[in-house]
Nucleic acid binder design. Sequence first.
DNA 1: AATTATTACTTGCAATTCGCAAGTGAAATG
DNA 2: CATTTCACTTGCGAATTGCAAGTAATAATT
Lengths: 143, 143
Amino acid sequence: MLRNKTSAKRRSGCPLNASVEMLGDRWSLLIIRDMMLQGFRSYKEFMQCYEGIATNILADRLRKLTEYGIIASEPDPSDGRKLIYFLTAKGIDLAPVLTEMVLWAAAHEDTGNQALVRQMREDKEKLLVGIRQRWAARHSLAT
Amino acid sequence: MLRNKTSAKRRSGCPLNASVEMLGDRWSLLIIRDMMLQGFRSYKEFMQCYEGIATNILADRLRKLTEYGIIASEPDPSDGRKLIYFLTAKGIDLAPVLTEMVLWAAAHEDTGNQALVRQMREDKEKLLVGIRQRWAARHSLAT
DNA sequence: AATTATTACTTGCAATTCGCAAGTGAAATG
DNA sequence: CATTTCACTTGCGAATTGCAAGTAATAATT
């Protein structure tokens, strides 16, 4: 049925368990990254970007991330078909996690986007402040 | 067949793709955490610790983490049946990623292990140095 | 106003992956 | 030498995923 079943299993252990439960799959972190850095906001943008993600899985991940309070959505006022997805404060707080993951991969694998990596290495804090500021500017109205 | 199929798909994009490919599942990060913080080294220790992990999945994850160069193993000199698993330098470099994930979850969920969380918040750098030092001490011989 | 297109999904089904129980082989223990 | 321990593998039913084909609501076009 592809829905959550509130398995109380790894609850209340090390905090990492909670993170892995929410983020430990092939797509969630990529969705969050692209909302944070690419400004993705709609189902269609995600769908076009990731070759390979199944439509039902994208819908399921967006639903779960919403349940976890990492993202939220509202109807697009200028187009009633669209939903606009955005990161919540909890979601934007994942910026340091993503940063460390990017730096780790860049240090140990051949990867692209050297510009971003260089920026992260040179001034991690400044980048994080920038991400937060851009987010806050967009969400000065919504919660 | 439960083995890798070198899908060259998300290769060479953002470095995060590489991280998610290696770590984006329900168990890998937990295995790494427990090697890093709990000193786990054998199949049996992992098996006993995680209720819910299937034996074949544990074997598969250990194999993949080895292929990725995040962990390595060697026969136990004092018991020929055992393999000793240990983190490589690449593996120990995941410490900042784990730290940020723990801090994020602790900030946004009810989680346990407050002692660790407090230590991380109070002096992240010192903790990371400590983890590295303990690791280096154990691996002064092996690569 | 009626037709077509777009958007965000759901549904159905085959294929893959996972969880669990039961092996297996090699080495240690008694 | 029999038994136990350890690190797995195998088999199988169940859950999850990928893909193709809908669907319902709104928007754009004719």
